[in-house]
Computed example of a mutant assay.
Amino acid sequence: MKSIVVYCGSSPGTNPIYKEVARELGEKFAKKNIRLIYGGGNLGLMGTVADAVLTNGGQVTGVIPNFLAALEVAHQTLTELHFVETMHERKFKMVQFARGVIALPGGYGTMDELFEILAWRQLKLYDGPIGVLNVNGFYDLMLQQLDRMVDDGFLKAENRELLIVSDSIDELLMKIEGYWAQTF
């Protein structure tokens, strides 16, 4: 497990726990020599997790569309920063670099990325583990909606199980590592 994509907000959110968990995740990535792959921004939880990895001697690869970089939101001190033209290219390139995905709290962009990678996994276009760090119960209502989708026949139970969920960083990383141990 050398690299993991993290999807998260370009805002820090209103509860300080979100920023604290993003910082803690970055510290653990650095300690475990896991390269962070993320959207390349310097704002919000994105900037927090990247800064924490870098501050603790870790490696960070960012992927950012040129139009966002032009708005001066690109992080300037990453290990690597790749520029792409579109958001679609960004999402594709990020998962090409990674062996797993973790979603922290975020807004539309985070949800878009999370559900697209879940759809790719369901269609066998992506084969890595996908997890959500359910900080402060942030994803509780979404998880209820996924269960409703199964109950109402729109989502197969085995596809619902593609999403790994934990409110603990250590447990989530252990489950992601366990995925690869079972696969090979």
Rank of each mutant, 00 (worst) to 15 (best):
K2P: 02
S3V: 04
V5D: 00
V6D: 02
Y7P: 02
C8A: 09
G9L: 07
P12R: 13
N15F: 03
E20D: 14
V21P: 00
V21M: 15
A22Y: 06
E24S: 15
E27C: 14
I34H: 03
R35L: 03
Y38W: 03
G41C: 05
G44S: 06
L45S: 04
G47M: 09
G47H: 09
A50Q: 05
A50W: 03
A50L: 06
A52M: 10
V53N: 08
L54C: 05
G58Y: 02
Q59N: 13
V60K: 09
V60I: 07
T61G: 00
G62D: 05
P65Y: 12
P65S: 13
P65D: 11
L68S: 02
L68V: 07
L68I: 09
A69M: 08
E72T: 02
E72K: 13
V73F: 03
V73G: 01
A74G: 12
Q76I: 11
T79S: 15
T79H: 05
H82P: 00
F83N: 00
E85W: 06
E85H: 13
H88D: 11
F92G: 02
M94L: 14
Q96L: 08
A98T: 05
G107S: 10
Y108M: 10
G109I: 09
M111D: 00
D112V: 07
D112G: 11
D112E: 15
L114S: 08
L114A: 09
A119Y: 06
Q122K: 13
L125H: 10
D127F: 12
G128N: 07
P129V: 01
I130K: 01
G131N: 01
G131W: 03
V132K: 00
V135S: 01
N136Q: 12
G137R: 06
F138D: 01
D140T: 10
L141D: 15
M142I: 13
M142T: 13
Q145E: 03
L146F: 15
L146C: 06
L146G: 02
D151T: 11
G153T: 07
G153M: 10
K156H: 13
A157V: 13
N159T: 09
N159R: 05
V165K: 08
D167F: 12
E171W: 04
L172T: 08
M174S: 15
M174Q: 14
K175E: 15
K175D: 13
I176R: 06
I176Y: 10
A181P: 00
F184K: 14
